[in-house]
Amino acid sequence: KELVLALYDYQEKSPREVTMKKGDILTLLNSTNKDWWKVEVNGRQGFVPAAYVKKL
């Protein structure tokens, strides 16, 4: 599985998104969309802005 690092805090704005804190390590589930990547964090799956994370 591929991991990404949260570069910034992000507060979810819809049920399809997830909240993350700067420094969190997230599991990358899908990065086919250039703007929104699907990740898993704390057992929850959802989208975060691709610009807010970096592949490890």
Rank of each mutant, 00 (worst) to 15 (best):
V18E: 01
A6G: 03
T19Y: 04
I25V: 12
A50H: 03
Y52D: 03
K55V: 12
G43C: 08
K54N: 07
E40K: 06
D35M: 14
L7M: 12
N33L: 10
E2F: 13
A50P: 05
E12T: 08
Q11D: 12
K21V: 09
A6T: 03
T19F: 05
L29S: 03
W37V: 08
V18H: 03
S14K: 09
P49R: 04
K54E: 15
L29Q: 05
K38L: 15
E17A: 06
E12H: 10
L5Q: 14
G23E: 02
K54I: 14
D35L: 14
P49V: 02
V4L: 15
L56W: 09
L3Q: 12
G43N: 12
P49H: 02
G46Q: 02
T27D: 06
D24Q: 13
E17W: 04
A50I: 03
T32S: 12
S31I: 06
T19M: 04
V48G: 00
G23C: 06
R16L: 15
A50C: 06
A51D: 12
M20L: 11
P49T: 01
N33S: 11
K38A: 10
T32M: 10
M20K: 00
P49K: 03
D24H: 05
A51I: 11
T27C: 08
W37Q: 01
E17Y: 06
N33A: 09
A6S: 06
A51C: 09
I25A: 03
V53A: 03
D24W: 12
R44L: 09
A50E: 04
T32W: 09
K34D: 13
E12S: 14
E40S: 09
M20Q: 02
K38M: 14
A51R: 14
Y10K: 01
Y52S: 14
Y8I: 13
A50K: 07
K55C: 07
T32K: 11
L7T: 06
Q45P: 08
L5W: 08
L5H: 05
N33Q: 10
I25C: 05
V18N: 05
V18C: 08
N33Y: 09
T27Y: 12
S31K: 08
N30A: 12
L29T: 05
N30G: 07
A6P: 01
V53N: 00
K1A: 13
P15L: 09
E12Y: 05
Y10V: 01
R16E: 15
K13I: 08
I25M: 07
M20C: 06
V18S: 02
Q11K: 15
N33K: 07
V39W: 00
A6I: 02
F47A: 03
K21P: 01
K13P: 05
V4A: 14
K54P: 01
S31P: 07
Q11L: 11
K55T: 10
Y52E: 02
L3C: 08
Y8N: 11
R44G: 04
D35K: 11
Y10G: 00
L28D: 00
V41Q: 12
G43K: 05
D9Q: 04
E2L: 11
L7G: 02
K38Y: 15
Y52Q: 06
W36C: 06
D35G: 11
E40Y: 07
K54Y: 12
A51F: 10
D24A: 08
N42T: 07
G23F: 05
K34F: 10
T32G: 11
D35W: 14
Y8V: 14
M20Y: 02
G46K: 02
L28H: 02
Y8L: 11
W37P: 01
L29C: 06
G23I: 01
T19P: 08
K34H: 11
L56Q: 06
G46V: 04
W37D: 01
P15D: 13
L56G: 04
T19C: 06
M20F: 14
F47G: 02
K34I: 10
E12K: 15
T19N: 07
G43Y: 06
G46H: 02
L56A: 06
E17D: 06
Q11S: 13
P15F: 10
E12A: 12
E17S: 07
V41F: 11
W37H: 03
F47L: 11
Q11G: 09
Y10L: 01
L29K: 05
K54W: 10
D9I: 02
K13L: 11
K55E: 07
M20A: 02
T27G: 07
G23P: 00
L7C: 06
Y8G: 06
S31Q: 10
F47Q: 04
K55W: 07
V39H: 00
I25H: 05
K13Y: 05
L5F: 09
D35Y: 09
E17C: 07
T27A: 12
V39Q: 00
L26I: 08
L29R: 04
K55G: 06
Y52M: 12
R44W: 05
G23V: 00
Y52L: 14
E17V: 05
K1W: 15
F47V: 07
L26E: 00
T27K: 12
P15M: 10
V53S: 01
S31C: 09
L56D: 04
L5Y: 15
A50D: 01
L3G: 04
K21S: 11
K34M: 13
L26S: 02
W37C: 04
E12Q: 14
M20D: 00
Q11I: 15
N30P: 03
L7Q: 05
D35H: 15
L56P: 04
E40F: 07
K1Y: 11
L56F: 09
W36E: 04
E40T: 06
Y52F: 13
Y8P: 00
A6K: 01
E12I: 07
Y10A: 01
D24L: 05
A6N: 01
W36Y: 09
Y10Q: 01
K1T: 13
Y52C: 09
K54A: 14
G23D: 07
L28C: 06
K34L: 11
L29N: 03
L29I: 14
S31V: 07
T27I: 15
K34C: 08
S31M: 11
V4D: 00
T19H: 05
V48A: 04
L26T: 01
E12F: 07
D9M: 03
W36V: 03
L26Q: 01
L28F: 04
P49N: 03
L3N: 06
S14P: 06
E40L: 09
D35T: 15
A6H: 01
G43I: 03
V41Y: 14
A51H: 12
L5S: 05
L28N: 01
L26V: 09
P49W: 03
K55A: 09
Y8C: 10
V4Y: 13
L28Y: 02
N33E: 11
T27V: 15
Q11Y: 15
E2A: 10
N30C: 09
E40Q: 10
L26M: 15
Y8H: 11
A6R: 01
D35V: 15
D24K: 03
V53M: 06
Y52K: 07
R44T: 10
A50R: 08
K22D: 03
V18P: 01
K21F: 12
Y8R: 15
A50F: 02
V41G: 13
F47K: 03
K13M: 14
L7R: 05
K22M: 10
S14A: 10
V48W: 00
R44H: 09
K55P: 11
K1M: 15
T32Y: 11
D24Y: 05
D35S: 13
K34A: 14
Y52I: 07
N33V: 05
T32F: 11
A51W: 08
N33D: 15
L3S: 08
S14Y: 08
K34E: 15
V18K: 02
D9W: 03
K55M: 15
E40N: 05
K22T: 08
T19Q: 05
G43A: 07
R44D: 04
F47M: 13
E2S: 10
Y10S: 01
A50W: 02
N30R: 06
Q11M: 14
K34W: 07
Y8T: 10
W37L: 05
P49A: 02
Y8M: 12
K13E: 09
K34P: 14
P15Q: 10
F47E: 05
Y10R: 03
N42R: 12
L5T: 10
V41A: 13
V39N: 00
